[in-house]
Design a protein around this nucleic acid. Structure first.
Length: 747
DNA sequence: TAATCCTTTCTTTTT
DNA sequence: GAAAGGATTA
């Protein structure tokens, strides 16, 4: 009889799946089917041991991976895997804290600070402590604090080893930072792991509860766990040796975030684990795989494993030497078009990787001009856009009125004529009385505010108070709509700058995602939505239905695969990055990073590099990455080779910034005359639009453009609103400040 | 005292 | 080429 759990596996995979009791280390090379091993093993254990879904804990690094695993498990078991404990480390930690926050003295409505929030807090603290922000960057101080927390080092312990000026600054900031997190009733990312550890250590009963639930444990991407994550695991494991970790030391690329490869070696010894290497790669061709092997084999102390593949191909690795990164982007875009025409690929089969987010701009521009649908993952993430963070800060403050960082963020947004000095009055008042910021704003008179400023403050306080009372009662969508309306966010955002329309459409997208959240989780409120978004990662919302080219950093690409992969900016200074050249350890990580990039490719790989790179707004000459020379010559084919001797004209830009938009001649941009690649002249990639000053400028029959709905035709106009029919969204009513949300399309 | 404009600084990667 | 700090204006 056929068995879909075991039959489709190769010998090694099957061995790993069937090795149920005792510790197991699966050394899973790139593309060797590790997700398959985890999901099949999950299903197999359930069946063999007659367990409930909740009895197995599987930890991954992204929500996307978790969701895919749940789907696979559902398919394999024929059971509802929605409740399966397949989660990220951080969301597992959050769940444990939420289970009983009183154990660490937190209320149930605590806030979660993301990196930006935490950095802001550090900065405020450093200013308060009179530290020079120019000498000691708040970002690196926060980095030091969070690395310490990942190592489970407390502020007190850090202080003992603070033997430099920088470390002393960190130490003092660290104390205040922890103190402030508590006062703000907030936890940061590191706390999501560190606090559960504390809860478990201090409350054995609490730990026992989880130990009795989780009878089997699996961890994905184990090479990327840091000290605290490993500690948390050790606590959960206890005497139960039924733990399986899956990892690949060659793909460890998060050392800078505190990940320790040594965890793998330690695991093997500590638990006397059986080691099963998975060496057959099902993803890449022999040429791609052998080239990748060349890159990492120079790293000493690797765990022994040599990947092999049955996929033999004639296709060499395409190398593209381009005049500058602008032309590089066009070369890539053109190559994508060419591949699609010749080889029946669709856009989904392509990905372009880069080392730094800043590199995405040229690529984006090239994709747009050549009409290639694309999606950028990471970088300026949706939830990190200013307007979105502002609204989320409002919600955070309403849910947790003691949250200073959120208070500080929104107190003068939109402008309420409350500057630094007035703000300090309010915070001073709140702290001296021990009351929440919402109470302090509402009682701003006692804080010493007067006149219009006082009125503004009190008004805001009342809005926030009302909403605070309604967190449980209002549906998330209504909650956020009322909020946005009450603080006149639309008027503010629309008059913001020339991007006002874009920004407002982001806000509408936020409302939309809240609506979706509400539909999926009808019983949850806006506070639950906050928890969800704080832990979302950049590739989580990757969808399968639409056809587009994926653009992302190499770090974001881990775990993914594409038919054709482009790695751009393969120059010394980016890959390997200039900040790594002085450290052997970091150089090895750069190697692994390049290895990860290469091994994402199934059929074809292109490596491209510019001869001139823009940095600090200045052009400088660069050379091809030293790693490139390590790829065997017979595997390489030079597909594009441009020269840089000829300089023609300044490159045009699709979008000019609203400020400083006057023409400023820059250093000549190098564009060779003998150029095969065509830059299309685009008259307009958007409809030409004209701003209107009031609703009176619109009449029935006009074509209009709306940030979210796109282009539509006006069918009805009244004094206060218009109705228009949109291509994708049908008939929509637009009210409020119509002049700001709509523009006329000029034929 | 807040908002605006101009100058300076700085860019790795992210759950 | 953007974001953030500092000086200037209102």
């Amino acid at each position: 009889m056929s068995d879909k759990i075991l039959d489709t596996l190769n010998d090694k995979q099957r061995e790993a799946v069937e090795y149920i009791d005792g510790a197991l280390l699966v050394l899973a090379g790139a593309g060797s089917g590790k997700t398959r091993v985890i999901t099949h093993r999950f299903a197999h254990i359930l069946r063999e041991k007659h367990l409930h879904m909740r009895n197995i804990l599987a930890v991954t690094f992204t929500n996307k991976a978790a969701n895919e695993m749940k789907e696979r498990i559902a398919y394999l078991t024929g059971r509802d895997a929605f409740k399966a404990w397949v989660r990220t480390f951080h969301s597992t930690g959050l769940l444990i804290i939420r289970d009983n926050p009183e154990l660490i003295g937190y209320p149930s409505n605590f806030s979660i600070y993301d990196d930006t929030d935490s950095k802001n807090l550090v900065k405020t603290i450093m200013k308060d402590l009179n530290f020079d922000i120019n000498t000691f960057a708040p970002a690196s101080v926060y980095g030091a604090i969070s690395r310490a927390k990942d190592l489970l080092i407390s502020a007190g312990e850090y202080e003992l080893e603070a033997n430099s000026e920088f470390k002393e600054v960190v130490s003092k900031t660290f104390f205040a930072y922890e103190d402030n997190l508590r006062k703000n009733r907030a936890v940061d990312f590191a706390d999501l792991i560190a606090l559960p550890i504390r809860m478990f250590r201090e409350n054995p009963d609490f730990l026992d509860k989880y130990r009795s639930i989780w009878k089997y444990i699996m961890v994905d991407e184990f090479q990327d766990t840091n000290k605290s994550q490993y500690e948390l695991l050790k606590l959960i494991i206890g005497d139960n040796n039924n733990i399986c970790v899956v990892g690949d030391d060659d793909q460890s690329i998060y050392g800078w975030r505190g990940a320790v490869i040594d965890n793998i070696y330690d695991f093997e010894k500590r638990y006397n684990a059986k080691v099963i290497p998975l060496e057959q790669n099902y993803r890449s061709t022999n040429i791609i795989l052998e080239s990748a092997n060349e890159i990492v084999q120079k790293i000493p102390d690797r765990m022994s494993k040599r990947l092999w593949t049955e996929r033999v191909s004639e296709d060499k690795i395409g190398v593209m030497e381009c005049a500058d990164s602008f032309r590089e982007a066009y070369a890539i875009a053109n190559k994508i078009k060419e591949e699609i025409e010749q080889n029946n690929y669709s856009y989904k089969d392509f990905a372009v990787f880069y080392r730094t987010n800043a590199q995405s701009r040229h690529l984006e521009e090239a994709m747009r001009r050549l009409n290639i649908p694309y999606m950028i993952f990471g970088g300026q993430k949706f939830y990190e856009r200013k307007e979105i963070k502002d609204i989320l800060a409002y919600i955070k403050l309403i849910v947790n009125p003691y949250d200073f960082t959120s208070f500080e963020r929104i107190i003068n947004v939109p402008s309420r004529k409350i500057g630094d000095i007035t703000q300090k009055r309010i915070t001073g008042y709140a702290l001296s009385k021990g009351i929440s910021y919402i109470e302090a704003i509402t009682d701003a008179k006692s804080a010493g505010l007067k006149g219009g400023v006082l009125e503004n403050a009190v008004n805001l306080g009342e809005i926030l108070f009302e909403l605070n009372q309604s967190v449980e009662n209002l549906s998330p969508t209504n909650f956020v709509k009322i909020l946005i309306d009450a603080v006149r966010f639309k008027d503010y955002i629309s008059g913001y700058d020339s991007d006002g329309l874009d920004r407002w459409s982001n806000v509408e997208e936020l409302i939309n995602s809240i609506r979706i959240f509400e539909t999926i989780n009808p019983e949850l409120n806006i506070a639950d939505f906050l928890n969800e978004v704080s832990l979302q990662s950049s590739i989580d919302d990757m969808e399968n239905e639409r056809d587009y080219v994926s653009l992302m950093t190499i770090h974001n690409a881990k775990g993914l695969e594409f038919g054709v992969v482009f790695v751009s900016g393969v120059v010394n200074g980016l890959i390997p990055h200039s900040s790594s050249i002085n450290s052997i350890k970091e150089m090895n990580e750069e190697r692994r990073l390049f290895y990860v990039a290469i091994t994402r490719a199934k059929d074809k790989l292109y490596l491209s590099y510019p001869l001139v790179k823009m940095s600090y707004g200045e052009n400088s000459d660069v050379e091809a990455s030293e790693f490139l020379a390590e790829i065997p010559e017979q595997y390489i084919e030079m597909t594009v080779k441009e020269k840089t001797e000829f300089y023609a004209y300044d490159k045009p830009s699709v979008k000019t910034s609203s400020r400083n938009s006057f023409y400023k001649p820059k250093r000549e941009t190098k564009i060779p005359v003998s150029q095969k690649i065509e830059i299309p002249v685009i008259t307009s990639d958007r409809a030409k639009t004209a701003k209107i000053s009031s609703i009176k400028d619109i009449s029935v029959g006009d074509k209009v453009i709306h940030g979210v709905f796109g282009i539509g035709k006006v069918e009805f106009v009244s004094e206060k609103m218009i109705q228009a029919k949109f291509e994708d969204y049908g008939l929509q009513q637009i009210g409020g400040n119509v002049a700001l949300s709509i523009q006329k399309v000029v034929e």
